[in-house]
């Protein structure tokens, strides 16, 4: 099976949902099209969490392979394809951060931890920038504790216990703020659609 260009029906490009349906049946051509559609997002998430280009590429590769392997179990009733792919990517990236923390390697790279995620501004479309602005605005509508708890967990890969330690807050409070913060974030984003 070849991987040249996205497969199409009567010339119309496939949606992510149509691609994943085909990937679930072992269609490598459809997987190549899916890769082209989502890999820039996957790499951006891995880079933001890992803050290391080589490791991010490694994790992006593992995540895309997970997508291929588990496509037959993708369940559309539990969310969109892109969310599913990025959820897989995020978990892989966070697992890597944790295993490094365990091995004590991460601190050695402390110097590069606060490097800004390089954005590919050329590839980034206006629509994408609007999305960023919406997420940024909505994050600002959260309480400081909600915002910090979510950001530390999601981008630094801290467990909620580590977050509680860093923010000197009770565990129960942190668990609750993560949950109600995400709900508020979702409601805020929905209200802006």
């Amino acid at each position: 099976m070849t991987a040249d260009g996205p497969p199409t029906i009567a010339g119309a490009p496939l949606t992510l949902e149509e691609m994943i349906d085909r990937v679930a049946l072992g269609d490598e051509g459809a997987f190549a099209a899916l890769y082209d559609a989502v890999a820039p997002r996957v790499l951006a998430v891995a880079t933001r969490v890992l803050r290391d280009v080589a490791q991010a590429e490694e994790i992006a590769q593992e995540a895309m392979l997970d997508v291929w392997r588990s496509a037959p179990r993708y369940d559309a009733s539990r969310g969109g394809v892109l969310s599913w792919v990025l959820t897989i990517t995020h978990r892989r990236a966070v697992d890597r951060v944790r295993s490094e923390q365990a091995a004590g390697e991460r601190e050695e790279r402390a110097g590069v931890r606060d490097v800004q995620t390089p954005h590919d501004e050329v590839a980034e479309q206006v629509e994408t920038r609007l999305e960023h602005a919406a997420v940024r605005d909505c994050l600002q509508s959260l309480s400081e504790l909600q915002n910090e708890a979510i950001q530390l967990a999601y981008w630094k890969g801290y467990t909620y216990r580590q977050v509680a330690e860093v923010l000197a807050a009770p565990l129960g409070t942190i668990k609750a703020r993560m949950r109600d913060g995400l709900i508020r974030l979702r409601d805020c984003l929905e209200s802006r659609v």
Partner: peptide, 10 residues
Amino acid sequence: AQLALSAGSI
């Protein structure tokens, strides 16, 4: 996943 989207594209 909306947070993930805010990481942009590379």
